[in-house]
């Protein structure tokens, strides 16, 4: 048994190394003065300087962040409403139908979402650009928020709502004083997931972005198609740091709310 555990750890370590290897590789060569992703010639920060002085890139970064924050905020509101709607729907059948429709966008491949949204926006007459990208990101984030919030709602004992009503709370009190505080961790998780999905999305954006507007993923793609450029490496190092900061931040937020609020997380 013991040796089994040891092999398990070794195996895990190998998987771990493979998962991180490309990222380390990228960051390592971001300091290469040689200009290629092989033959490390010397340490330089030139690529970082190049990134920092790339105004076009920073506009795109700003676009990406704006889209991510806006779309995740709006989709969190919509998603919480959706979760509440599903939670409150009485008929089992209706609930299943709503859930199924909710999950369509989650299981759909990005290409389908992108292509169908492209048709949709063209039909409605929405110009491809900021608006179309924002709408798409909201659209595919909503079901994610729903799925993060709904388990929290279902975990909530229904007597909690009864208790609040019993103590004189009206529908609005029940929502703001009991339900929303209870599902706050789920809402945070949903918002965070929406944020990462939006920051990460390439395929859907690629379809609906048009010519003038670009996000980071799309920009990286078009640069990578032209071949290796170490400024992308430098950019990826910076993004990786940002990601880690986000994850740590999220980890602490969820820990904090877990301690102060929900305590008994299900095992």
């Amino acid at each position: 048994m013991r040796s089994n555990h040891k092999w398990g750890k070794v195996y895990l370590a190998v998987v771990f190394v493979i998962l991180y290897m490309p990222i380390v590789y990228l960051i390592y060569y971001s300091f290469n003065s040689g200009g290629t992703m092989h033959d490390f010639e010397g340490v330089t920060l030139d690529w970082y300087k190049e990134v920092l002085h790339d105004t076009r890139l920073w506009i795109i970064v700003l676009n990406t962040i704006t889209i991510a924050l806006l779309s995740s905020a709006i989709s969190t509101i919509l998603g919480v409403m959706g979760a509440l709607a599903i939670y409150y729907v009485k008929s089992w059948r209706m609930k299943q139908i709503l859930l199924m429709l909710n999950n369509v966008l989650i299981v759909s491949p990005d290409v389908i979402i992108g292509a169908s949204f492209l048709i949709l926006f063209t039909m409605i007459g929405i110009q491809l650009g900021f608006t179309s990208v924002l709408l798409s990101h909201i659209a595919f984030s909503v079901p994610i928020v729903v799925l993060m919030v709904l388990p929290k709602l279902q975990e909530m004992s229904s007597t909690l709502i009864d208790a609040a009503r019993d103590l004189g709370a009206n529908q609005w009190d029940v929502l703001t004083k009991v339900v929303l505080p209870y599902i706050t961790p789920g809402i945070f998780a949903g918002f965070f997931m929406a944020l990462t999905y939006s920051l990460d999305d390439f395929a859907v954006t690629f379809f609906v972005t048009g010519n003038g507007f670009s996000t980071l993923s799309v920009e990286i793609y078009s640069r990578a198609r032209q071949g290796i450029s170490l400024s992308i490496n430098a950019l990826s190092a910076l993004l990786f740091l940002l990601t880690i900061a986000l994850v740590i931040g999220y980890y602490f937020i969820s820990q904090k709310s877990a301690v102060s609020g929900m305590g008994g997380r299900r095992r």
């Binding site: 490309p22 990222i23 990228l26 990462t196 920051l199 990460d200 390439f202 980071l216 993923s217 990286i220 793609y221 990578a224 290796i228 992308i232 990826s236 993004l239 990786f240 990601t243 986000l246 994850v247």
Partner: peptide
Amino acid sequence: WVNLLLKVY
């Protein structure tokens, strides 16, 4: 959480 394209790149 690292951008998919960066890993592919």
